[in-house]
Design a binder for these strands. Structure first.
Lengths: 229, 229
DNA sequence: GCAGAGAATTGAACATGTTCAACACGAGAA
DNA sequence: TTCTCGTGTTGAACATGTTCAATTCTCTGC
């Protein structure tokens, strides 16, 4: 799907070293948090020289990206299963987002490094070009979740639904990352309430009475996202 | 209002130097952007030694905060005028937000340093403790804008309106900062459309038919913001 | 086994935010 | 005038992300 690393097959040993550095990074990140973790710490933990870390990863940020990509790969199959197992939009949304929470749980704090940047020009921003491939795949999950659902949105809004659902998910994850309540209970409540509200809103959106709102919303989305491709 | 700098009256010369450094910073920020601007550049531009910059500002971020605080001070009176001049929620919102755009225009790019962080633990995040004073004052503007308006929201939602309007404003500003269209036209369109949509939604919210939505929304807001103080 | 090319690895060096001990200077006391 | 004290100022030094020339390792063709 996405273009493979431009690197050659990469010898077995090299792949091993790369993995070791990545694992060491996650270990150090979990211990000290992203900011406080030093590239020297990471190299030491992996048992390599500082330069080796940079031979395998372009930057400290790139390590987080590698983690993100690997996670996305792992989540893909889990999401496929969820989509196959459920039919309604509600169960599918619940399923997809739950997969994210479950998969990111062990590195929840580290995820802050990924969601901390609203700046779409920052490589680690969820809106950046660098994260576009992952984002697009993610959005396609939501497209498939919406596909067979009975939701009938006005045609000038429907095309944006997957992107809006993705945005909703990102908001939830952002809240989750910085949710200090025990076991992130507040996020769970937020999830339940907003999901219900979302579905209720989607059903309300079918009422023709709201035509003026539909028109406004459609124009607005066109402004933000550009014409639907 | 806010606690004055803990520093003493500060000699005239000191105040002058501080201002000189702040102005030099803005100059360099405008030229090179926040990231690429070096503290050494700034010190050189201001004609002082590197250490002097740190004598007056705790950090590079703190310079942006100083700019933010100064801007907020300047905008305060402009917002007061707007509030005094207009009566409806629409004109007031339009007025307040326009003041922001006008005031920040010369340093629009620099504002990226302030809005780039979604992380509420980052000092420069609009959600951080460090920006709380400014945020609260800002929210109070919206409280006053809503005060005399004819909007009648359900009592479990009404207390959150000012904070929601502030959030809306922050979203607009974020979009504006990274809006690459000529003269930021897209932001203008977005502003118009979303404002109309917002007002329409507020009017719709008065329909008792939507009781279930009101309950959900109220619970949700309570989860996010805590009980209304 | 051996030469050489390319991959992997190393650590010193650099850039930049930040800290800090030392110094300069000006106003009041003696 | 000279001494003293505190504000203001300086630049060297440090921490850490990053670069890179040099070195070592590994495999391939002979």
């Amino acid at each position: 799907m996405t273009d493979q690393q431009k690197k050659q097959p990469a010898s077995k040993k090299a792949e091993e070293t790369r993995t070791r550095i990545l694992e060491a990074s996650l270990q150090v990140f979990r211990e000290r948090g992203f900011e406080r973790a030093t590239m020297r710490d990471i190299a030491a933990e992996a048992g390599v020289a500082l330069g080796a870390a940079y031979y395998y990863f372009e930057s400290k940020d790139a390590i987080v990206m590698a983690f993100y990509e690997r996670s996305q790969g792992e989540m893909k199959t889990a999401v496929e299963e969820t989509l196959a197992r459920s039919r309604t939009l509600e169960t599918r949304l619940r399923g997809i987002i739950q997969v994210k929470f479950d998969c990111f749980e062990p590195n929840r704090k580290l995820l802050g490094a990924l969601s901390a940047h609203a700046d779409p020009e920052h490589p680690l921003s969820p809106f950046s070009r660098d994260t576009a491939a992952i984002r697009d795949q993610d959005i396609s999950f939501f497209a498939r979740a919406a596909e067979e659902s009975k939701v009938k949105l006005p045609p000038n809004i429907a095309p944006y639904l997957p992107r809006l659902l993705w945005l909703y998910q990102m908001g939830l994850i952002l809240f989750w990352v910085y949710d200090h309540s025990a076991e992130q209970r507040r996020t769970k409540i937020l999830f339940e309430k907003t999901l219900k509200m979302l579905l209720l809103t989607l059903r309300l959106a079918e009422i023709p009475l709201l035509r003026p709102l539909h028109r406004l919303a459609g124009d607005l989305l066109k402004t933000v996202y550009g014409d639907t491709p």
